[in-house]
Write a protein that binds this DNA or RNA. Structure first.
Length: 818
RNA sequence: GUGGGUGUAGCUCAGCUGGGAGAGCAUUUGUCUUACAAACAAGAGGCCGGAAGUUCAAUCCUUCCCACCCAUACCA
């Protein structure tokens, strides 16, 4: 393209679309799979959960990741940045149910999965929309290296690694109390729990003791009277003198009239309620512990779908809330409810649907890791945390771990366990590695006779593997995508360079990835882990559809531009919360406009310039000073970028570009550029040489953050002077060898500033001519005198001794005569 | 309860190893100056959450307190 064709204004919308398309078409950001000479920089990019639309947090994280990828590319790295989507499991299943208005439970599993695959991974599917958004936002991924956590590649790796866990004794199946979501009707794990504060009634219920020698009453307090039919004991504290006399006796459970033992346990708090507490299997975690410790019977009060079981007699089939109400009413009628207190308490809910969880007895697959807690704490010290303080989040999580990892889920859309069972003896039969991936519901087992009992009755596992148990393998999933290529051997046994994610999934994704990597590969998964903060609304509240404060990145990018959104993302420090105020986008908009205009101006004076390295050696005065300042910026932005501190980089380039280059340098140098006949061709050429270097490097430094406008500008001019046809494959600026007398130049800027101030204070136009500027200085100003005269409209400059100056510093005095 | 983060101009935030309190937006006043009025020039605006300590010197270090946010635990 020709400089003369540059439009007056930059149309971001049109250009971004073209540029994004050309990057994709030309495979600009292709990973060089067989190039082993270039150093590799590898990024374990977060596969977003396909549960609707990419949200602003995704856009923010992807943008930060892209700053790093682009910077590293300019630094000469072969950047390995595969892209993935996490598109199976509960969120994806629920999305499909919503869109298609169907229920997984109401149809054959096979049919439902087919619909999921179409809706999510089909040619017009949601996954494609996700990838298209990434493209629009300028995320420089290699489109040829991508995965979905449900594709064949991921299924194989996930199943293979599960079998490996079993083989080394880390996966086990157990029939035990498990956390259960009655709404989603699946087992869940500790990490999926969330706290929710709820109002509840604390009910004081009368229990009777009816033994031959004793007839008494006492009350217990409970928020869950519907669990009365599953009561297996009541407890008081060993030191509680009120109840000591009941030791060894039995109490009758009201309404249901069966007897339970009265026992002592330290976990019964004398100060809570009446000090007497009922134990039901399984009301909460303490109940589970009591059941085990005191060897109490197991009574199933609640069924898979959250309804009261047959134990509840006439209340059977009611959901928990209704049953509770009914039982309270009857207790009241019979005078067995003596008091009710309103309390606020927090309950554990499923983070996906906010449903209070229950504990149910069921057979599930667990991954054993509680024995590794001490090692886990050491693992977190083996890689860098950015920012550092998130390490304590991880440690906190590890310290609180109370359950092995339950990985089986009773849902339809997920990766199947590669397992069949012998129906007679329960022996698990695993798929052969060469057959992976398998779907035991469809595929035949590797053997048709149970090796344990010789039964021929073999049945498939129907549960699926929790999606985090697959996504915790993303480093392997990513690396295996280039198996067979030369770089694979370099990548396979070394940690990746970077993981970037939102801080909210430290306990989900980061922790589990570290665990899997350590167990399977005996190494940390990556050298650096960045955890980003959230984008909150203007007031600092979490964005939520129910609150109506959601800002969609697609809308923002459509209304402004990807560059503007990226610029916004870059202005904040990594790891902290961002309050999203649309007004702030104006900064990016202004800078991009300024960059376009200033570059256009520079280009218009560079048309007849032939760049030549030797020109730089002839620079002096303000020109040399600008290159000197540029050197400082190059050094410092390089350092900041190496530390992933792009907000600092951006503010430094901004300051340099706006203040030093545009407001001062361009103004000073205009006269030389426009009037070569008056000022001399050589002086003009020096200005050109300076502009050439300044703008080339400014564009490159900005290109990491605003890749579209810089690519567009590069195309008009600098492309002719570089080997690459994209700015993003050139190299990051390095410093130049220049001599400068910094003090002298600082002086000219100070003089200009004073004259501007002087004119402003007299309400004069900046164009107003000055007849004579008298100046007394020790520095030799011959080199800058003409520039000063031209840019400040001064007719004459006189070097004189000044008695009463208008303005003075330690090194000079000046006086203005209009 | 435990762990972590934050508190600097009206708003959003920078302030590296202690010595000058800063930027952008908003606001006030000028200026259409041959890239840009979404610009340029100039100005106003702050007991750097509170208290004590260390130091010649504290926004920065130490201790305590207050407020807000997050994680995690307990939750009959």
């Amino acid at each position: 393209m020709n400089i003369k064709e540059m439009p007056k204004k930059y149309d971001a919308k049109e250009q971004e679309e073209n540029i994004a398309e050309s990057w994709k078409k030309n495979q600009t950001f292709c990973f060089e799979k067989d190039n082993v000479d270039k150093p590799i920089y590898s990024i374990d990019s977060p596969p977003p959960t396909v549960s609707g639309k990419l949200h602003i947090g995704h856009a923010y994280g992807a943008t930060i990741m892209d700053f790093i990828a682009r910077y590293k590319r300019l630094k000469g790295y072969n950047v390995f940045l595969p892209i993935g989507t996490d598109d199976n499991g509960l969120p994806s299943q629920r999305l499909v149910e919503k869109i298609k208005k169907i229920k997984a439970k109401d149809m054959p599993k096979k049919e439902f999965i087919k619909i999921c695959n179409e809706v999510i991974n089909g040619p017009e599917g949601i996954r494609e929309k996700y990838l298209d958004d990434f493209k629009k936002w300028g995320i420089s991924v290699d489109w040829n290296i991508n995965y979905s956590t449900i594709d064949k590649h991921s299924r194989k790796i996930s199943q293979q690694h599960f079998i490996e866990l079993y083989n080394i004794g880390r996966a086990y199946r157990k029939d035990a109390a498990t956390m259960w979501c009655p709404l989603c009707q699946t087992a869940i794990s500790q990490v999926e729990l969330c706290d929710l504060e709820k109002e509840a009634l604390f009910n004081d219920i009368v229990f009777k003791i009816e033994e031959e020698d004793l007839e008494e009453k006492f009350t217990i307090s409970t928020t869950r009277p519907e669990l009365l039919p599953a009561c297996v004991a009541v407890f008081y504290h060993p030191t509680d003198v009120r109840y000591k006399k009941y030791q060894g006796k039995k109490a009758t459970v009201p309404l249901f009239n069966f007897k339970v033992p009265i026992l002592e346990d330290e976990r019964a708090d004398p100060d809570k309620g009446t000090g007497m507490v009922m134990c039901c299997t399984f009301g909460d975690q303490t109940d589970i512990e009591w059941q085990k410790l005191h060897n109490l019977p197991i009574k199933v009060a609640i069924t898979d779908d959250g309804k009261l079981s047959s134990l509840a007699e006439e209340y059977q089939g009611m959901d928990v809330n209704k049953g509770r109400k009914e039982i309270i009413t009857v207790l009241k009628e019979k005078g067995l409810l003596v008091n009710q207190t309103k309390i606020k308490h927090t309950v554990n809910v499923h983070e996906k649907c906010n449903t209070p969880i229950e504990f149910l007895q069921s057979k599930q697959w667990f991954i054993k890791y509680l024995d590794l807690k001490e090692e886990m704490l050491l693992w977190s010290k083996e890689f860098n945390w950015i920012p550092e303080f998130f390490r304590s989040r991880y440690n906190n999580w590890v310290n609180g771990l109370g359950w092995d990892w339950c990985v089986s889920r009773q849902i339809s859309f997920g990766i199947p366990f590669p397992i069949w069972y012998c129906k007679s003896c329960g022996e698990p039969i695993f798929a052969k590695e060469k057959d992976l991936p398998v779907d035991p519901s469809v595929d035949k087992p590797p053997i048709d006779v149970c090796p344990n009992c010789q039964s021929k009755n073999i049945i498939p596992e129907t549960d699926v593997i929790n999606t985090w148990a697959t996504s915790s393998l993303t480093p392997t999933i990513a690396k295996e995508l280039i198996k067979g290529h030369d770089t694979y051997d370099l990548l396979k046994d070394t940690p990746m360079d970077l993981r970037i994610e939102g801080h909210d999934i430290i306990s989900f994704w980061l922790f589990n990835t570290v665990f899997r990597s350590k167990i399977h590969n005996n190494q940390i998964p990556w050298k650096n882990a960045i955890n980003t903060g959230w984008i909150l609304d203007k007031k600092g509240k979490k964005m939520a559809k129910s609150v109506g404060n959601v800002i969609e990145p697609q809308e923002i990018v459509g209304k402004y531009s990807a560059d503007i959104f990226r610029y916004f993302s870059a202005t904040y420090k990594l790891g902290y919360y961002i309050h999203f105020n649309e007004k702030e986008l104006i900064n990016g908009k202004k800078t991009i406009t300024k960059l376009y205009n200033a570059t256009k101006f520079a280009y218009s004076h560079l048309e007849d310039y032939e760049p030549n390295k030797e020109d730089l050696e002839t620079l002096s005065g303000i020109d040399a000073y600008m290159i000197h300042k540029l050197n400082n910026i190059i050094t410092s932005t390089t350092k900041n970028n190496e530390n992933y501190d792009f907000s600092k980089t951006l503010s430094e380039i901004d300051l340099f570009f706006w203040k030093e280059v545009c407001d001062n340098y361009l103004e000073i140098v205009k006269d030389r550029l426009y009037n070569p006949e008056k000022r001399g061709k050589e002086k003009r050429k020096q200005a050109q040489a300076t502009l050439f270097v300044l703008f080339k490097d400014i564009l490159k430094m900005y290109s990491v953050i605003v890749p579209f406008v810089t690519e567009y500008l590069y195309d008009f001019y600098f492309i002719s002077y570089e080997k690459e046809n994209t700015i993003h494959k050139t190299s990051y600026p390095t410093t130049y060898d220049v001599d400068t007398n910094e003090n002298k130049i600082k002086q000219i800027i100070e003089i200009i500033s004073f004259i501007r101030n002087y004119k402003a204070s007299k309400n004069l136009s900046l164009k107003t001519e000055i007849n004579k500027l008298e100046i007394e200085t020790k520095e030799d100003i011959t080199n800058i005198e003409k520039d000063l005269k031209a840019c400040m409209q001064i007719k004459e400059i006189a070097l004189v001794k000044l008695e009463s100056p208008d303005y003075k510093t330690e090194s000079f005095k000046i006086k203005i005569n209009l």
